[in-house]
Design a binder for these strands. Structure first.
Lengths: 335, 335
DNA sequence: CATCGGCACTCGGTAGACTCGAGTGCCAAC
DNA sequence: GTTGGCACTCGAGTCTACCGAGTGCCGATG
């Protein structure tokens, strides 16, 4: 529906506005000679583009600024492929080469890496457990009536569940529960196997029941707030002139649940980019989100993303997110 | 050295500047009749206070603004005791009444509570382990040559250490290591007991050695970055007009190690308040930190704190930090 | 001798007037 | 369809003047 020249003009306006942050006028579009028409013609086209909803006017006699729809068009028609650059590639390589065992730490550092690659805030959602197998299980007594159930997964993650111990539960019962859990769960995929309860030992059966409930209940409540790692929030401070915007964005980033749902919403879109209003959160009207899932063995287990202003460098962010998510997946598969 | 009236004037200047953020003039000080002298006299006194280093001048013909020393005097001579208020007390009560088992979650929520009580950023440093006993130990294999060592502590916290498994380590060896660790460590205070290595089983001894090293090494490296919980960072956005200040402060808050050392530095001071330059971090020249330790059984195990602008409400922050730290300690003792 | 009223002076902030420049939209001409 | 020309708009910057909240100093006073 947009002819060739209008497309070029629109792209140019968006690109330049991303670069400068200023409204773009007709003469700027024409300046570098890529389009061989006069400013007047460009003006006419820009008026059309505005009527179609791709551009706006802050006020008469200012240049044009892209709308969410304009950015959307721009992103859907990006031609530059991978723009991460020599230096960025190397940093990602080094990072994952040096990455050591501990999962939480690695995910946290990954969010920092992504933030420093893109200069925006970065989010890493920890891998879900569906495809992981149980390496080890442990029930232990903390206090008179309080216990802790630990499930160690094959990627080194640990699920922990606080449980209540009935007064009748002796240490011997805890010990047999451990044996039973080990026998029944180790090697299985998490959350798949319902626990068999021994008919002849009521205390043991009760304890196992509590454990089973704890695990099931918590799987419902996923994702846990501590499964999200946000890095580079400080960078948001410079991206917006209005203090209030900064405050609102930061406060969104503090709410893990919102962040997770943002990412998973965005994952369902083509191109994995949510622009301004597309995020579905009013406070993020001036922000865009770029996400990518990461996989272990062809299975999507988590997502990483970048949160920046709508006028962000999409090509670069997409490249960074793509590279990091791919490497992260590989790393997790290898571990 | 400061006579009575100068003291009153200084306090009044600081209090008013905290409230309004504006430089305070001589007539403001006199306005409410608490000091029965003329503005001219106040001016003379303020000039003295300036010579002594308690106040400054943004420029001639502006009112006075407190220096770090002025704030210091103000804080050291606070007369209002506890200013948390009915409502705040109730919220703290409710919070700790509703607090449930899981440690990490509770600490994270505590930082949010403190932030919302004070309207500044809040920091909670997780309890150290010195006084805790080991409830359970577990070594498990994750992959061919990777394992995980878990130590469950009496407060529900979990220490985890990634370890390397030599190719010679069979599952049977892992099993005996588990038995040995359980036997030797359960019930002991963490980090106190050196592991006895069996002379007759070289593989087992080697594995136990690796475990011992992991635990010792990590105790050195304490505090771990994930032992710090920062809440309410969004609130910092409004506290400073200069974007750059906001950026710098946020970036400090992202560096867990710096945050921890800030808190422990501040803990050594009287009154547990570090003002501006006293923090020792250049980027925090316009910030103050209010901290309080929390204890379990008369032993200091951690600290909580609040980070705000130098012109923060010290009375309120001190009260909030005191109340929350006390309740947190009690909660941890009870669990 | 501390306190006070008076006075000259300083300086930031606000408001108004003016200009400049980068834009636009429209129109008539090619 | 494209273009150059033209009138118009509006934000941003500059300059000016002025106001008001301050200060510092000085001489007077109890």
């Amino acid at each position: 529906m947009l002819d060739d020249r209008k497309t070029t003009i629109l792209k140019k306006v968006v690109a330049e506005h991303i670069e400068t942050g200023q409204p773009v006028g007709s003469s700027h579009v024409v300046r570098d000679g890529a389009i061989d028409v006069s400013p007047a013609t460009v003006r006419a086209d820009m008026a059309t583009l505005e009527r179609e909803g791709y551009l706006t006017h802050p006020h008469t006699s200012a240049g044009r600024v892209p709308t969410d729809l304009g950015y959307r068009f721009f992103v859907d028609h990006l031609d530059e492929t991978s723009a991460l650059g020599r230096d960025g590639e190397r940093r990602v390589d080094q990072f994952f080469a040096a990455a050591h065992g501990e999962l939480e730490r690695m995910l946290r550092d990954t969010s920092q890496l992504l933030a420093s690659l893109t200069d925006y805030a970065a989010v890493v959602v920890a891998p879900t457990h569906e495809t992981l197998t149980v390496c080890s299980v442990l029930v232990t007594r903390l206090a008179e009536q309080a216990g802790l159930l630990l499930v160690v997964l094959s990627n080194g993650a640990i699920d922990k569940y606080g449980i209540e111990l009935a007064p009748s539960v002796t240490d011997a019962v805890v010990e047999s529960a451990n044996a039973a859990l080990r026998e029944q769960l180790i090697g299985t995929t998490v959350g798949q196997t319902p626990l068999r309860l021994p008919p002849d030992a009521p205390e043991l059966a009760a304890l196992l029941g509590v454990c089973g409930q704890a695990m099931a209940g918590s799987t419902m409540a996923r994702p846990e707030p501590n499964d999200v790692y946000v890095g580079g929030t400080a960078r948001m401070a410079e991206q917006f002139e209005a203090v209030n915007t900064v405050r609102e964005v930061l406060s969104i980033l503090e709410q893990s649940l919102v962040v997770v749902s943002l990412l998973s919403d965005a994952l369902t879109r083509e191109h994995s980019v949510a622009i301004g209003g597309e995020t579905g959160v009013a406070s993020l009207a001036e922000c865009s989100i770029v996400v990518a899932p990461y996989t272990v063995g062809n299975e999507v287990v988590g997502a990483i993303g970048v949160l920046g202003p709508t006028r962000m460098n999409y090509a670069h962010a997409l490249a960074a997110v793509a590279v990091v998510s791919q490497r992260l997946g590989r790393q997790l598969s290898a571990g």
